[in-house]
Design a protein around this nucleic acid. Structure first.
Lengths: 117, 117
DNA sequence: ATAACAATTGAACATTTGCTCAACTATTAT
DNA sequence: ATAATAGTTGAGCAAATGTTCAATTGTTAT
């Protein structure tokens, strides 16, 4: 959480550095943001998120659909739950997962726009 | 690059799985997307990208601004170059980096929206 | 009670990742 | 030519990450 302070050169363009420096969000914001994008940065989690953006789904169905074990899926779902991207509801033995809100869909949209450019 | 095919259960809700399965993008799309989001998923790269979204900047200034060595920054810039998120122009000894296009800004916007919800 | 199945969990392991360090290239100034 | 500085690069290393495996919980059916 602490920014490193060692560097190996002097500023070349002080005006630009000062300008950007004055606008920079605090480091906590960057940590939160990095944590959010980390959830999208793994192949498996990405497919889980995309799937849930289409339909709520239980762990078992996700596992079959994505060709993984329930355990692997469950571990990833836990990460997604802890970062508040998905929520779950239990119905008997079955746990259904769905997106926590619509931001995920927005983020996907921008991502697809970029790779389809 | 090859999807695993082992899983440890049977589909429970065939209708849902079929529906989602029919809409699912091919795996290459997910790989591209994960690669894109990976660039946003690291604290340092995220700050580099944010900085460049404000102003073009040289390696040395980035290093001082972010409190890192030129080497560390240069390695990250290489990743960002290889994924086509930034481009560079050389002016004498100095190399200036800037965003390759506006998608980065869009993706940031959605990310900030989410963490500020 | 017992069996069966959905889901979760923690430890172990292999892979990936980001930084450091030292060596190197390229450009400019003396 | 030589020195100084901006930037790049590859190897090495420590930390983080994703999957597997085995054990466990919770719920339903017999």
């Amino acid at each position: 959480m602490i920014d490193k302070v060692s560097y190996d050169c002097e500023v070349i363009h002080q005006d630009i550095v000062d300008k950007v420096s004055g606008l920079m969000p605090e480091s906590g914001e960057f940590y939160q943001l990095a944590t959010l994008y980390k959830m999208f940065a793994d192949y498996t989690r990405l497919k889980v998120l995309w799937t849930l953006s289409v339909n709520e789904m239980c762990v078992c169905d996700l596992a079959v659909l994505l060709g993984m074990t329930k355990s692997a899926i469950s571990h990833q779902l836990k990460s997604l739950r802890l970062t508040n991207l998905v929520r779950s509801r239990k119905e008997g033995k079955v746990v259904f997962y769905s997106l926590a809100d619509d931001h995920v869909r927005d983020i996907f949209e921008k991502g697809f726009e970029h790779i389809h450019e």
